[in-house]
């Protein structure tokens, strides 16, 4: 990972994937690009770790995958959020909120 770019906190990648898929179903590459764009290239996903995360989420039943056709006309595996995943996303978002507020407080007070 290039220097100067923050390392992803453990578990955050999954949160980001879930959030991305909450907007629309997307293939792996698209997910990586989307996260990169939104974070203004600050969060560059170590792309190799993207797929393990996707497979893990699929195994847990939070997202499901289907082979579809990408914009370019190529066959691509497209992921979408499941109901269970949506619930998980809600709870993780809340969790993250609380967490970041707490961290900011600590940093602000120092």
């Amino acid at each position: 990972m290039p220097k100067g770019k923050p390392d992803l906190l453990h578990g955050t990648l999954e949160l980001l994937i879930l959030k991305t898929l909450a907007l629309q179903p997307l293939h792996g590459w698209g997910i990586a690009k989307h996260i990169g764009h939104l974070s203004q290239e600050v969060l560059e996903i170590g792309q190799g770790s993207l797929y393990p995360a996707l497979y893990r989420l699929e195994d847990r039943g939070w997202i499901r995958a289907e082979w579809g056709v990408a914009e370019t006309g190529r066959r691509a595996k497209v992921y979408e959020l499941t109901k269970k995943g949506a619930k998980q996303l809600a709870s993780e978002e809340a969790h993250w909120e609380a967490f970041s507020v707490a961290v900011n407080r600590v940093l602000g007070s120092a």
Binding site: S49, Y51, P52, Y55, R56, D59
Partner: peptide
């Protein structure tokens, strides 16, 4: 990464 992906699956 392939191995990790397999394990995660």
């Amino acid at each position: 990464y392939k191995t990790q992906a397999r394990e995660a699956r």
